[in-house]
Simulated assay, not measured.
Amino acid sequence: MKKLLKEWRCRLFGHRMYEEVFAERRYSFVARSRMPLYRVVREHRCDRCDKCDRKILRSDIRRSQLLKEGWFIER
């Protein structure tokens, strides 16, 4: 019932979208070594109904390349 009310609220008043950009860690298995690769993702997400538009900006790049381009990585 709550989900239905949230969806109707978004239909009447519009979505309340916010933007989030982050790097996802993926692993590539090449010759017995696990090499971590990253994918930069931009999401536009609605607070009310959790509608999500996801776009991949860059894919399969290394940590050093992320740091060169100005991305900050936390562990």
Rank of each mutant, 00 (worst) to 15 (best):
M1Y: 01
K2T: 01
K2R: 06
K3Q: 10
L4R: 11
L4V: 05
L4P: 00
L4K: 10
L5F: 10
L5R: 12
L5N: 11
L5E: 13
K6L: 15
E7N: 15
E7H: 07
E7S: 14
E7G: 03
W8T: 11
W8C: 13
W8D: 06
W8Y: 14
W8R: 13
R9S: 14
R9T: 13
C10L: 08
C10K: 11
C10N: 10
R11T: 09
R11E: 15
R11N: 13
R11F: 12
F13S: 07
G14R: 09
H15W: 13
M17L: 15
M17N: 11
M17E: 06
M17D: 07
M17C: 04
Y18T: 07
Y18D: 01
E20A: 02
E20W: 00
E20L: 05
V21A: 01
F22C: 00
A23I: 11
A23G: 10
E24L: 13
E24Q: 07
R25C: 14
R25D: 02
R25T: 10
R26S: 09
R26L: 10
R26P: 00
Y27C: 00
S28D: 04
F29V: 12
F29N: 11
V30M: 05
A31K: 12
R32Q: 08
R32F: 11
S33R: 12
S33I: 05
S33N: 10
R34N: 06
R34D: 10
M35S: 04
P36Q: 09
P36V: 01
Y38M: 03
Y38P: 02
Y38G: 07
Y38N: 02
R39W: 11
V40A: 12
R42D: 03
R42C: 07
E43N: 13
E43D: 10
H44F: 09
H44E: 14
H44S: 08
R45E: 11
C46H: 14
C46I: 02
C46Q: 12
D47A: 12
R48Q: 13
R48D: 15
C49V: 11
C49S: 08
C49E: 11
C49M: 06
K51C: 06
K51I: 07
K51F: 14
C52P: 00
I56N: 02
I56H: 03
L57F: 01
L57R: 05
L57T: 01
L57S: 01
R58Q: 14
S59V: 06
S59T: 10
D60R: 11
D60Q: 11
D60V: 07
D60Y: 11
I61T: 08
I61A: 02
R63Y: 13
S64Y: 03
S64G: 00
S64C: 04
L66S: 01
L66G: 05
L67C: 01
K68Q: 09
K68T: 09
E69Q: 13
G70K: 10
G70V: 10
W71Y: 15
W71C: 03
F72P: 00
F72R: 14
I73C: 06
I73F: 07
I73M: 15
I73Q: 03
I73T: 07
I73S: 02
I73V: 13
I73G: 00
E74Y: 04
